[in-house]
Design a protein around this nucleic acid. Structure first.
Lengths: 178, 178
DNA sequence: TTGATAATGAAAACCATTATCAATATACAC
DNA sequence: GTGTATATTGATAATGGTTTTCATTATCAA
């Protein structure tokens, strides 16, 4: 039986018509790309994939359609550290309602972790309920990001420190964090 | 008594010399701005403030110095949704080790919340310990961001829906999320 | 099929950030 | 203090992701 909000294979199609927007070939191509992807994509990623299916598509349409989809609540957009936004479907079987990352502030590396999430879930279900009520905010997605130093950069930092010690005229009482 | 890592009023000054970098007027001006700010700032914010103290300063120096400070671990940089990065001191009395935000995906509004943080702290202290060990990652800062619809946009969305219903030729079976 | 209008894509504009490079300021040796 | 090597600076240009513009095309209800 059909569900009220539509979460079946083409749950998003009804949204277009329902909102007074036309369901065109480029738009189908874009949502299809997002639907088939199992991770978040950049606008360019989406462009390249959609281009294979529908070569006439332009990058402008990608951005415009993505904005539309975000407004409709079909797509979730978030800022990744590299200057490019990432997009993913906000519902359906592939939808991920949360992101958990370790971000290295030195090299920019991003580690997506899946550990300890179960413990978090319990806490967040309470927190989200409280926040929703207090701020009357409808929470759809969650991002937990830890910033710091990855294994490699912690080590390199020490190396850099040594190198500086050799080439520099400065005082030797330097810390590890250079 | 002086502390080993330096967290006093000018804790960051030693870092420059310690790392073999010169402590110049522009650099002092930039850190002073960050030190006096009680929230995260964009590069332009910092430029405008530093410019008042030292008008000869250029935007280039702002970016360059910020990068340096991030590398030294003095400044924490993170992506805000609006395409501009934000910066803040990573230590000292004004330093904030965590950010908790509600981000509206429709209007872009950001609500910084301070509720429920105590409960989170307990959980995160465990999670951070586990992650640090597993990935050998030194966690310095934390970002918790909930995406969704703010109060106003939830309501506007309904209004838009009505408007569409009047001006559109489309089927009336539209959802609230347009 | 038609006609009003929504949607498209190429190109230009925009804006935050980065790279280039000649000029300047700094720290150290003397 | 003076000189010298070099780190630092800032104006300018370049970059790259995203948005705007505008003439053309596709869509849908009638």
């Amino acid at each position: 039986m059909p569900r009220r909000n539509g979460t079946g294979p083409f749950w998003w199609r009804g949204r277009f018509k329902g909102c007074g927007y036309r369901l065109t070939i480029p738009r189908k191509a874009i949502v299809d790309v997002l639907d088939k992807a199992n991770k978040h994509l950049s606008a360019e990623d989406i462009y390249l994939s959609a281009h294979k299916v529908y070569p006439a598509i332009g990058l402008t349409t990608i951005y415009r359609t993505l904005e539309l989809l975000v407004q409709m609540g079909v797509v979730f957009k978030f800022a990744s550290g590299d200057g490019r936004a990432r997009y993913q479907l906000s519902a359906g079987p592939k939808a991920v309602k949360y992101h958990h990352q370790l971000v290295c502030t030195t090299c920019g590396r991003v580690i997506d972790y899946a550990d300890f999430i179960d413990k978090e879930k319990e806490l967040f279900s309470q927190t989200e309920k409280g926040l929703s009520e207090k701020y009357n905010f409808k929470i759809l997605n969650r991002l937990v990001r830890f910033y710091g130093l990855c294994d490699e950069c912690s080590q390199q930092r020490t190396v850099t420190s040594h190198k500086l010690q050799v080439t520099s005229h400065q005082s030797p009482e330097r810390s590890k964090d250079c």
